[in-house]
Design a protein around this nucleic acid. Structure first.
Ligand SMILES: Nc1nc2c(ncn2[C@H]2C[C@H](O)[C@@H](COP(=O)(O)OP(=O)(O)OP(=O)(O)O)O2)c(=O)[nH]1
Ligand SMILES: [Mg+2]
Ligand SMILES: [Zn+2]
Length: 640
DNA sequence: GCCGTTTTCGGCCCGACTGTTTTCAGTCG
């Protein structure tokens, strides 16, 4: 857990360095260092003890020394010194759209402003417009931005974003002229929460596409729109961006906009080491690129709707680009006409400089793109610069688990406790999904609010399940329970009864405020109990609603590995617990993971995809996942 | 500050747009 503290300090140092006008690459080194520490799968303190810090890519002598210092003292001198020189409040100003380090610095140096409230006041009093590099327009944007910040929602949970994005992409796909429409950005990478929804379409009729997109029934507000990009909000203010590109650019642009930024960054670095250049328009040999520079053509930056003095965010005009990467080939005289092969490119049309070059290779799939860089295909879930490039180069990328590999669900509730579906109903839903087995794991008695089962009720339920299992073939209900881990680390149900169950899940539902020490003791009790097979939602976090209880994850993993206990990836979209990074750590410990929906209804079984998303982002292969086993093997595993 | 199938020094991802510039820096995706 210390690693987040170190990462936060490094991130902060990077901001403060930029604000102080330091060499940008030096600040960048701290940012890289922050990410390296955050993405470390090993226990940071262990790596430090063993003197292996400098083996981490991005950590050199200076950062290693600072990590040691932070681990022992909680901070470091350099950081404290920097905070003395640069008011730490200045980092808040960076939140304002259009305000970067440079601008924040000028504002501070000239006006002494160090917080958002003062910035707002200064903007209202028109004291910003006289500063160098700032005029009346920027001042207006800043003010607008500050006001927007207040009402800004947090990130969107994937459980909302993914279905919405797929629905929107599906609608776009059906429009005339659209050859492809796909989800990009963090949604495609299946991040647990996303900042916005990014969509890309390859079309011969961008204008028609934009018109249709901005008038979809879900649209709440159109924030910005020009001929090739649009940004709007749906639902409670969730932002959706669409880029339209000519069909021949689709793959490159889709890949570029899938990111992550860090992954793109690394790929581009890799390319330049190979004498190649890669951008959203194609892959270029350096020679070809240099040649292209001489290609005569219209000057870039002539979008007809740009710079018309429209207010920012006007639905009619773009204003300052709502989407930084501008769509390709927009011109003032768009020929949207009847299906010509290259409808976007024509004489006398303005197009950005880079897009006027002809790519050295024709790319028809992302796989080919990676091939040109000497790499195997890297699935979107891995594109985070968390070691996937190195693994790809070594040929050691994991073969990621897929939803189709799963043979059952091991954590499901029924009407016997707080579920909405009866046992037969849940079983039927599981069969419809093609599962071989389903574990019914209702709550235990101490969880009165969920109508937890006592010993007698559990025995009854077990008899009912036996009856049902005798009534069909090719499908098995496993007798299980989600046993509550009590405050004193005992389990809610006695061992002799647990022994009779096929499967025992243990989890914590109370005492969330207890200190880590106590939580870990409780988990330890469960892990050491020979009847406990799986720890459910091991950190207790609720996405965007509740921090987990404080638990020492490294200790938990160590003990789970030692006791041969599986850990859950709870697929319920508001849990996703373990998270991707912890799942990956668990895998490195050799721990088996169970991807479970924790369904309280038949529909809940469909949440499995979110659990699989977490598993894939955690680099899990089929063999790492308990419920990919066929029934016989699963039973053997449960009995050992 | 970090790093090396191009390097131990000199790079560090890339492109587009905007305002305010007098020819480009800052910001963003
Ligand atoms: N090469 C490059 N690509 C970028 C950069 N910033 C963003 N992109 C690309 C990759 C991103 O996935 C994509 C969309 O940008 P977003 O800001 O929406 O990021 P993303 O969707 O990854 O995360 P989010 O959840 O929206 O915050 O654009 C950059 O600095 N360089
Ligand atoms: Mg995004
Ligand atoms: Zn449950």
């Amino acid at each position: 857990m210390k690693r987040y503290q170190v990462a936060a300090i490094f991130e902060n140092i990077a901001d403060l360095l930029e604000l102080s006008g330091a060499e940008p690459f030096r600040a960048g080194a701290y940012r890289r260092g922050a990410r390296a520490v955050e993405n470390l799968t090993e226990d940071l303190e262990k790596v430090t003890r063993e003197g292996r810090l400098e083996e981490i890519s991005g950590i050199g002598k200076a950062l290693a020394q600072k990590i040691k210092e932070i681990l022992t003292t909680g901070t470091c001198h350099f950081y404290e010194e920097l905070r003395g020189k640069v008011p730490p409040g200045l980092t808040d100003l960076l939140e304002v759209p259009g305000v970067g380090a440079r601008t924040a610095r000028v504002i501070y140096e000239r006006l002494g402003i160090t917080n958002l409230a003062d910035l707002k006041k200064a903007a209202e009093e028109h004291r910003l417009r006289d500063l160098p590099g700032i005029g009346a327009k920027k001042e207006g944007y800043f003010l607008e931005g500050i006001n927007l910040l207040a009402g800004r929602g947090g990130r969107i949970p994937l459980g909302f974003a993914l279905p919405l994005a797929q629905e929107l992409a599906g609608r776009l796909r059906r429009l005339p002229g659209v050859e492809r429409a796909e989800v990009a950005g963090s949604v495609r990478r299946h991040q647990e929460t996303v900042g916005d929804i990014d969509l890309v379409a390859g079309t011969v009729d961008p204008r028609g596409l934009m018109e249709a997109f901005t008038t979809l029934p879900q649209v709440k507000e159109v924030l910005a729109r020009d001929e090739t990009t649009a940004s709007l909000t749906v639902g409670p203010g969730w932002r959706v961006n669409l880029w339209a590109v000519p069909p021949q650019y689709f793959i490159q642009t889709w890949h570029h906009l899938t990111g992550s930024k860090e992954h793109n960054d690394r790929l581009q670095g890799l390319a330049s080491g190979m004498g190649l250049k890669i951008n959203e328009y194609g892959i270029f040999r350096e020679e070809d690129w240099a040649q292209g520079e001489n290609v005569p053509g219209p000057k870039p930056g002539q979008h007809s709707l740009r710079g018309t003095g429209e207010p920012r965010g006007s639905p009619e005009a773009g204003g300052p680009s709502a989407l930084g990467t501008s769509a390709v080939g927009a011109g003032s005289e768009l020929d949207t006409g009847e299906g010509s092969a290259m409808p976007w490119v024509g004489e006398g049309q303005a197009s950005p400089a880079a897009s006027r070059r002809e790519a050295s290779f024709v790319i028809t799939s992302e796989k080919e793109l990676y091939q040109h860089l000497g790499l195997p295909y890297i699935p979107p879930e891995l594109r985070e610069d968390r070691g996937e490039i190195e693994a790809a180069r070594e040929g050691s990328l994991p073969v990621l688990v897929e939803e189709g590999d799963l043979r059952g669900d091991l954590h499901v509730h029924s009407t016997w406790s707080d579920g909405l579906g009866s046992i037969p109903e849940m079983a039927q839903a599981a069969r419809r999904r093609g599962y071989e087995y389903l574990a019914i794991t209702d709550h235990s008695k101490s969880l009165g609010i969920a109508r937890g089962l006592n010993e007698e009720q559990l025995r009854q339920q077990m008899r009912e399940i036996d009856r049902l299992n005798r009534s069909w073939e090719g499908f098995t209900i496993l007798k299980g329970m989600e046993v509550d881990i009590l405050g004193d680390s005992r389990l809610d149900i006695a061992d002799d009864l647990l022994q009779e169950l096929d499967l025992v899940i243990a989890s914590i539902h109370t005492g969330f405020r207890q200190p880590a020490e106590q939580i870990n003791r409780r988990l330890e009790g469960a892990l050491k109990n020979p009847h406990v097979d799986i720890i459910a939602h091991p950190t207790g976090r609720l996405l965007a609603r509740r921090e987990g209880y404080s638990v020492d994850v490294d200790r938990l993993l160590e003990l789970a590995a030692r006791t041969g206990t599986a850990l859950e990836i709870n697929a319920s979209p508001d849990r996703l617990d373990l998270c991707d990074q912890n799942a990956r750590r668990a895998r490195e410990y050799g721990i088996k993971l169970a991807i479970d929906t924790d369904s309280h209804s038949q529909a809940g079984l469909e949440d499995m995809k979110y659990g699989v998303a977490v598993a894939r982002r955690g680099w899990l292969e089929k063999k790492d996942v308990l419920n990919t086993l066929e029934l016989g093997d699963l039973k053997r595993w449960l009995n050992t």
